[in-house]
Simulated scan of single mutants.
Amino acid sequence: MSGEAGRRALRVRRGPERDAQAELPPPIRASKPKSPVKPNPKGGQPSDPPRERVLRLFFAVPLPADLRAELVAAQRKLTDNWRRVEAEQLHLTLAYLPGVAHSRVPELQALGRRLASSTPFVQLGLRGTGYHPNVGSPRVWFVKVEGAGLSELATAFQTKLAAAGFECEGAFQPHVTLARKKGPAPRVPPVTFAQTWTAQNFALIHTFLPRDKSGPVYDTVSQFALNAQLAVAALAAPEPSAPTTSLQTPPEEHHG
């Protein structure tokens, strides 16, 4: 596959309904081996070798089709000065990496496989909508996401990426972006959701802005299935017994 047909194939977006781990070809052609530095024929210093391409990548949890339909219905409340995120692009970002050398993409794929193999399914739920920034003129409309084990998964990403020398941008804020403002627009009243789902996979995604600047394009590089056996083991595990000694502080003080 090559040329325009290859590029179109890479733009196929993968949905969360696919549970099996899929290793897709990276959205960028493999970089050629660097040529040795050649002397300048006119004399002087040798010419510099070409710079390696830097990519914007992120790890994210995709949303199932039924939840995407609910969010698309909420997007209809917006005026035309809001640019709605397309249904197939709705996602929950776990870690954003704005400057990754193309040659290091395999390292991220390997890291994703290791994390997925040690992580059970995660129960998640949509909550209410909000704006960023919340004061003044907001630029982003989003819906909050909650779930046991979600913060731990994001923290594991941040820790392992930092240990491997990757720089993540921004603190983890569990949300799904619904729209970005492109001009003066009024706010809509808050919308609340009660939908829940079981996250069974996450993906490594390459994002870039096309020449027409119509909005970011997302290309799935790899998908990673979470460990179903760990999820079954967690359900089968007995409930912990009550402590035999009294606590020094009220139990509710141990929760954030």
Rank of each mutant, 00 (worst) to 15 (best):
L115F: 06
V85C: 03
L111W: 05
K77D: 11
A69P: 08
T119G: 11
G112H: 01
V122L: 12
F59R: 05
L124M: 07
L115C: 09
S118M: 10
R84Y: 10
Q75Y: 07
P64S: 04
V100A: 08
Y131F: 10
L90T: 02
L63W: 01
P62M: 10
L90R: 03
L78C: 13
L124Q: 04
A74D: 06
L71W: 04
G99C: 05
A60K: 03
P133W: 06
P64N: 08
L124Y: 02
A74V: 07
Q109N: 15
R114E: 11
A60M: 04
G125F: 06
L78W: 12
G130M: 01
Y131D: 08
E86D: 14
Q89M: 07
Q45W: 14
L71P: 05
A87G: 12
P133L: 04
E86R: 10
A110Q: 14
H102L: 10
P98Q: 07
A116G: 01
A69Q: 15
Q109C: 15
L108A: 00
L126A: 03
A116D: 02
P120D: 03
Q123F: 08
L57V: 09
Q123R: 14
V61G: 01
R113W: 00
H102T: 05
R113C: 06
L55N: 05
P133R: 01
F59H: 02
L126C: 08
F59C: 02
N81P: 00
R56E: 09
W82T: 01
G99S: 12
L57E: 08
A65T: 14
P41Q: 08
L111Q: 04
T79E: 15
A116T: 06
T93L: 06
K42F: 11
R84T: 14
G112N: 04
T79Y: 10
L90H: 11
V72Q: 09
G125E: 13
L126R: 05
Q75D: 03
L92P: 00
L71D: 01
G99A: 15
L108I: 00
R56C: 07
A101R: 15
N81G: 14
L57D: 04
P120I: 07
A73G: 05
A116H: 05
A110F: 06
T93Y: 01
E52Y: 09
R127L: 02
L94I: 06
G128D: 13
T129A: 00
A73W: 09
G130H: 00
E52R: 04
G44Y: 11
A65R: 13
T129R: 01
R76D: 12
L94G: 02
L92H: 07
G44Q: 08
H91K: 13
R56S: 09
S118K: 13
A95Y: 05
E88I: 13
V85H: 02
F59V: 01
R53V: 12
T79K: 11
R51M: 13
Y96F: 14
A110S: 15
Q89H: 11
P50F: 15
R113F: 03
